[in-house]
Computed example of a mutant assay.
Amino acid sequence: MWGSPSWLENYLDLLQLEREEASFAYLEQICRRHLAVFPFENAGKLIDHHEGRFPSRLVPSMEEFLERHRAQQLGGTCYILNSHLFRLLRALGFDCRLLPVGESHVAILVRLPDLGGERVYVDVGSASPLYRPVRFETEPQNRTGFGGYEVRLRPVEDGEGRWRYTRHIDGRLGEPIWTFDPDTTVSSIQSFSKAIYRSYQPDGAFMTILRCQVWQWERSRSLSLVNNRFSIRHQDGAVEKRTLADRKAIRQVMEEEFGYPDFPSGRVMDILEERGVSVFPKSDTA
């Protein structure tokens, strides 16, 4: 379409979606497909740091983001996933802004004309089942979940318009707990430069592990890999857990369960080992 960015068709093709008018229903389709197509993973982050692509850029370009997914089934963490979804939504005509959440997270606030200008919360970068826009202002008791995993956005009492983001797993409150102010938004990922720099510090949350997570709606399950711990969470709440013994087992899980034959798990493990980190705890091999 005339006036559209060159990458738009490529992005929609990966999501297996057609272009439509901006609406709540279309935004819900985009959120659901994004969680199924682009994994929450830190492999790209570790490789970028190791090969010196950071800090020359804060996040990959749109073209690189899409190509890395096609070639290696990469996605990213919150800054990559939500900043690129933000650009996609703007290109599709959505009225949206980036939303700082907590001290280290970014989400998206979208204003929808078919809901009378109501603001909704969108987030495909928290490894959580936020498969639809959250109508947090009109549904303050909202719950978005899958298989015993639930996210709630609640107004903070006497919080001067602030909201609290919490995760609940099998009925238990989990980490992190974030707060956000929907009236405090920005228009560029550059506004998060300090937080992104902090995330690349040697002790950063995603600099010392191998992480990959994705939602497979067609199979009614989600998959999670944290180092050599692999789990499958089913829609009925049942959870299967496996401890993977070696690199071959990790590679096999990435190919057979995730469907990611080119995911660079071996490369990431090499990088971690150079940093003195093993994804195989000694207790597993003792």
Rank of each mutant, 00 (worst) to 15 (best):
E218K: 10
Y197L: 15
Q201A: 12
L244A: 04
S188A: 12
F206G: 01
G161K: 00
A238I: 10
A238G: 10
S187I: 00
R152H: 14
P176E: 05
Q141T: 09
F230I: 02
F180W: 03
S191R: 15
R229D: 05
A195G: 15
G147Y: 02
Y165V: 05
Q141E: 15
I169N: 05
E139Y: 05
R242W: 04
D170N: 15
T184G: 04
Q216T: 09
R233N: 09
G148D: 08
G159A: 10
Y165D: 04
R143M: 13
W217D: 14
V156M: 10
E218S: 11
V214F: 01
R143L: 13
D203H: 09
V151N: 03
R247G: 10
P176M: 07
S220I: 00
R198C: 06
R143T: 13
T166S: 14
N228Q: 07
L173D: 10
T185E: 04
Q201P: 01
R162Q: 13
R152A: 12
F146T: 05
V226D: 04
W215T: 05
F206Y: 13
F192Q: 11
G174V: 06
E157D: 12
F192P: 11
S224W: 01
S220L: 12
V214D: 02
G145H: 09
R211P: 01
H234Y: 15
D183P: 03
G161Q: 00
D181I: 04
W163C: 03
R172V: 13
P202Q: 09
T185V: 12
R247W: 08
R211N: 09
V214S: 00
F192T: 00
G161I: 10
Q213P: 02
R152F: 06
Y200N: 06
Q216R: 07
R162D: 03
T144E: 14
F192V: 04
R219T: 06
W217H: 12
N142M: 04
W178R: 10
R219H: 12
R164P: 01
N228S: 14
G145R: 05
T166Y: 06
V239T: 11
R164A: 13
Q213T: 11
N142R: 06
S191E: 15
Q235K: 14
Y197T: 09
G147V: 11
S224H: 08
N228E: 03
Y197S: 13
T144S: 08
R172D: 08
H234M: 10
D236P: 11
N228W: 00
R219M: 03
H168S: 05
C212I: 01
G148C: 08
S220E: 15
R219V: 01
R219I: 02
V226G: 07
H234G: 04
L153G: 07
T185L: 05
S193Q: 14
F192L: 03
T185S: 10
I177F: 07
R247S: 11
W163A: 02
R143P: 03
G204K: 08
V239G: 02
T166Q: 14
R143Q: 14
P140E: 03
S199A: 12
P155R: 07
Q201E: 14
R154F: 02
H168Y: 14
F206T: 03
L153W: 00
I209P: 00
R233E: 02
